[in-house]
Design a binder for these strands. Structure first.
Lengths: 148, 148
DNA sequence: TAAATATAGTTGTTTAAACAACTACAAAGG
DNA sequence: CCTTTGTAGTTGTTTAAACAACTATATTTA
């Protein structure tokens, strides 16, 4: 059978094999360094380290996670004493998410592990080619979101 | 904070945002066409359509899914009457996975939907750039698997 | 202003990822 | 032969993705 001849390898890429491998590598490296975070939890913290006090909806938008996913991620991070929900005074629907001192203090060590993992993932790859990968993935993402 | 400045966009790629979008698009298109498969279930069927009668371990290797994952995917596909487990006569540990008539018959319609989804995802992108993406992702995958 | 509509967040369900621990069987080495 | 080691598959647990259905509050508009 050969229906997917020309696009087969491309499918392998979009299917997420490499993404899964990166996810595993990051998790492994977190554990090696006694950081008990998942990739998704880290992604949330990454937004908060730049933009503390934003709403859950903002976190959803910036991480491409749906709202129920954010609710549960924040639940976990709250249990781990890394973030806190603060109800907004003006709009009672909103919950503003703030970092705890612990949530702030782990930034540096976490980012060292993230950057080392990333550096290892892209070792020996030419920057111009990485640039093409970035641009192409952005275009594919836009193609998928803006349905033809 | 700016620890991840230079690699930030690249992280977005490896984090799987585009992969998730593709996954969603495929699921949506399956549903539109009354195909009740997930992307992962389709991936298993894709191997079987080429290589029927292989072991679960082979499916695990070819789809980068771990063994427990394969057990559960095969459970689902068996419930849907798409595949069957046949114990191997010579090696009692092995279970050979075969397609049912239904599992064989849906190949064509499923592949049409997959190919249309893929075609839409990569529309307006030059083949040479896609080739670079393929090669780079393979290299990143190898970098991650063969730890430095 | 009252009713309709929109937004923010939560809960429940199904499916999958990752990993540890387990059973059953096979192959290799003493 | 039999003990050790390896391989194939299963089960259990935690975390996440996707989606529907829901509550509470805000905004719009008739």
């Amino acid at each position: 059978m050969g229906t997917i001849f020309s696009t087969e390898n491309l499918y392998t890429i979009l299917s997420g094999r490499t993404h899964s491998a990166f996810n595993r590598a990051l998790l492994t490296n977190f554990r090696k360094n006694n950081i008990s975070l998942t990739k998704e939890q880290w992604t949330i913290l990454g937004v908060l380290w730049k933009n503390e006090g934003c709403t859950q909806q903002t976190l959803a938008d910036q991480t491409s996670t749906d709202k129920p996913g954010i609710t549960r991620l924040i639940d976990h991070l709250e249990k781990e004493n890394l973030v806190e929900r603060h109800p907004d005074a003006n709009d009672k629907r909103l919950k503003l998410i703030f970092l705890t001192p612990k949530g702030k203090s782990i930034e540096k060590e976490v980012m060292i592990v993230v950057n080392e993992t990333l550096k290892n993932a892209i070792r020996d790859i030419e920057p111009e080619r990485l640039e093409i990968v970035k641009e192409t993935f952005l275009q594919i993402y836009n193609n998928l979101e803006t349905k033809k």
